[in-house]
Design a protein around this nucleic acid. Structure first.
Lengths: 208, 208
DNA sequence: GACTTTGTTTGACAGTTGTCAAGAAAACTC
DNA sequence: GAGTTTTCTTGACAACTGTCAAACAAAGTC
């Protein structure tokens, strides 16, 4: 089956078109989900906020969980490589820290709905088993992302990390989640507070 | 009006009875909420899992948010003093750390549903403004709780805290939330991992 | 250009939700 | 113990949900 599909470009582009529709649906769904949250977002609401009708959603996705799951996986591909450039180009610890904090506060401000949705979905995964594999996978990705940053930071300071990867991730994530929750109530101050707090913590995560 | 009520014990006990009913409703609702999460819990489900009918719920609470809000506030009174005894009786840093970690893993295991609910509600508060004041208040309470522990820990080690209160709370909370999320997937290992990670972190939160 | 496949619209379904109101039952008052 | 107030039950409502299927349009195939 896979071989025949590979032999026929028309078929492949057809599959591609399906995939593109799915992506379009997912992007639209993510917009709605980010605004309303998982609980208050219905398939009809997603369809209304898109150029499609609610029937189309069901044509491309088996059911609601299938759609959400696809959205989460799609989202994941966009977020975990956010700091890679900073990590690769930084030539000093300060440059790395500044770049990291800059990007972090930037995404906090510019992609607030996505972050809200992520923390919402992770909470939902505690109650909805079907979400767990996706959430777990993203959590691992984010953990690795933080670990790359911390490792590089240790390299540049001539030290080595003083906590393991899961711990480092939990600490940084705790600060970031606090900022995301706080951002809703106090958009002005929160980014600066996040920067300040991470600055307090970062040096403590490597051996003196 | 308040004075007449104070003068008439019958009336007072009547109000008390209302309050007791509310507490009973709230306790039952918290049980259901902890199992199903905010999104999947309906007033009828709450009523079904209690000895009351769904009409009673509406008799004692204006609407759903009113009930949830009451539940959250009721819950708060039970959780933020959890470590007070340990803080007061510990005579050495190790005793404090051991007692703190013991109580923390204990509540992680024994009150999992409540903690799941808390993180769920905090996520919901990002989308539902009406929940925000209650969530904010509890967050402050928990922050103060962590700060009391850290201050005492610093006292007993002859040091002083090296991060401010919001930072300390965010860090510890990040580790605890990671444990709560992880506990669903892996109940056996998680408590030990939480202990281990907090042990890594605690010394870093005070000046050397 | 007929025919098949693929994609889309529309409307319907069964179930659930929060909310409310009318009336029964119980508690209380005098 | 009649009358009043409080408490509770029951049934209803309108709105909304996920799901599906039948009719319709478009694209592709021979």
């Amino acid at each position: 089956m896979a071989s025949t599909a590979a032999e026929r470009p028309a078929r492949v582009s057809g599959i591609d078109k399906i995939e593109r529709r799915r992506v379009a649906l997912a992007e639209s769904a993510l917009k709605t989900l980010g605004e309303l949250g998982y609980a208050r977002t219905s398939l009809r609401e997603i369809a209304n906020n898109s150029e499609f009708t609610h029937g189309v959603v069901h044509y491309y996705f088996r059911d609601k969980i299938d759609l959400i799951s696809y959205c989460v996986r799609y989202y994941k591909t966009k977020c975990a490589r956010r700091y890679d450039e900073v990590v690769e180009t930084a030539t000093s610890a300060e440059e790395l820290a500044t770049g990291f904090l800059g990007k972090m506060t930037q995404t906090l401000v510019e992609e607030t709905p996505m972050h809200k949705l992520w923390y919402d979905l992770r909470a939902q995964s505690m109650f909805e088993e079907q979400l767990r594999p996706d959430v777990e996978e993203i959590d691992k990705l984010l953990e690795a992302m933080i670990w790359r940053i911390l490792s590089r930071y240790a390299d540049l300071t001539g030290t080595s990390p003083s906590v393991d990867a899961p711990t480092a991730y939990a600490l940084v994530d705790g600060l970031f989640e606090q900022a995301v929750v706080g951002y809703a109530a106090n958009p002005d101050r929160t980014p600066a507070l996040l920067t300040d707090r991470l600055m307090q913590v970062l040096p403590k995560l490597v051996t003196a």
